[in-house]
């Protein structure tokens, strides 16, 4: 393959995968007795129909996916299979609420950074246990990060039912955080908050780090082949693995903090509809490229925002959106495989 087609491959993969998804989804919708054209049109209108739909719904819903997607992309880039973004997000959300509620009189320029830093620290802390088990004992992180998700979920349940329960004592949720801790609006007149900009900035920073710095080079080298990186003798893989775990956990924790400070203003059970898992699809569709994660997070945010409209206007149950998400992932995997097969045939021939 020439350099030019190689540079185009990720974009082609995404486009081919989206086309395949549309085709399969249309077939399934028709099979279910829904006119696919109407469903897609309603979904599109719900996500992009008006400026407010796009900014207040699509972009707001893309924000937690953007941050968790970046967390997953960074970890996977270093071949650290962090399936634990969901748990790290919960840890971050809890820490954010705890800190914000504990600082009732503090001004925004103090309490907002404190809240978000606490969220990032909690996410990193949550990721540190699987990191220690991987580097210290050689225990694979797929199962440990998955287990940590459940521990975080029950921990959140325990805290919102007990120690952090609202002072009214009516619902299983925390008190509302003080207004000074609310993230400011990014676009006046919409619900888009500062968290989206934070996500964009982290995406750019990660891209620069990965492509322009020696640290980023080491991380990619470990991701390409931990053994080779170790054998080359230039550096050790373990600190790189630790860094990938902690940074990934911190960004996922930040996602929880941003959601609490920007949207819900409190913590309750079921805060996340599984963003930490959808993030895997977001990162994969972006081929682990941080800048592309911005685009894919918006695509998944649009699916989520358009799902409601699809149900309202075309009568297609919102749960179809989850099915379409799965089709996107499977399509990317398949298209990816086909490229690889073509490339290896090309190089052999």
């Amino acid at each position: 393959m020439s350099t030019r087609t190689r540079a185009l491959t990720p974009a082609l993969t995404a486009a081919a995968a989206l086309l395949a998804t549309l085709a399969v989804a249309a077939a399934l919708l028709a099979l279910g007795g829904y006119p696919p054209g109407d469903a897609f049109a309603a979904l599109f209108r719900g996500a992009f129909g008006t400026w407010d739909r796009f900014v207040s719904f699509t972009l707001v819903r893309a924000t937690p996916l953007l941050l968790t997607g970046l967390a997953v992309a960074l970890a996977f880039k270093a071949r650290v299979w962090n399936i634990g973004a969901e748990g790290q997000l919960h840890a971050g959300a809890l820490a954010a609420v705890a800190v914000a509620v504990a600082l009732p009189g503090a001004p925004g320029f103090l309490v907002i950074p404190a809240t978000l830093l606490a969220a990032a620290a909690a996410g990193a802390l949550w990721a540190s246990a699987p990191a220690a088990m991987k580097t210290g004992m050689g225990v694979g992180e797929v199962i440990t990060t998955l287990l940590m998700n459940f521990v975080a979920l029950f921990m959140a349940q325990f805290l919102v039912q007990g120690p952090l329960r609202e002072s009214r004592g009516v619902f299983n949720q925390t008190d509302e955080i003080p207004p000074a801790a609310h993230l400011p609006d990014l676009v006046p007149g919409t619900r888009l908050h500062l968290g989206f900009l934070i996500g964009i900035l982290i995406a750019i920073a990660l891209w620069l780090y990965l492509t322009r710095t020696p640290g980023g080079f080491r991380l990619r080298a470990v991701g390409a082949s931990p053994q080779a990186a170790e054998v080359s003798g230039r550096f050790r893989a373990q600190p790189v693995v630790w860094l990938a775990f902690l940074a990934s956990g911190a960004i996922a924790g930040l996602a929880g903090g941003v959601q609490v400070a920007g949207v819900t203003h409190r913590m309750y059970e079921g805060l996340s509809p599984g963003w930490g898992y959808t993030a895997i699809a977001v990162a994969l569709l972006a081929r682990l490229n941080p800048l592309a994660v911005v685009v894919t997070a918006i695509v998944f945010g649009a699916l989520s925002a358009g799902g409601g409209a699809m149900q309202r206007d075309a009568g297609v149950p919102e749960v179809w959106v989850r099915g379409i998400e799965a089709l996107v992932i499977l399509a990317v995997l398949t298209v990816d495989r086909s490229w690889q097969a073509l490339a290896s045939r090309g190089s052999r021939g």
């Binding site: 898992y277 179809w320 959106v321 989850r322 099915g323």
Partner: peptide, 9 residues
């Protein structure tokens, strides 16, 4: 993907 899709479908 299979889990997400199964819950949806």
């Amino acid at each position: 993907a299979v889990t997400i899709g199964s819950l949806g479908f």
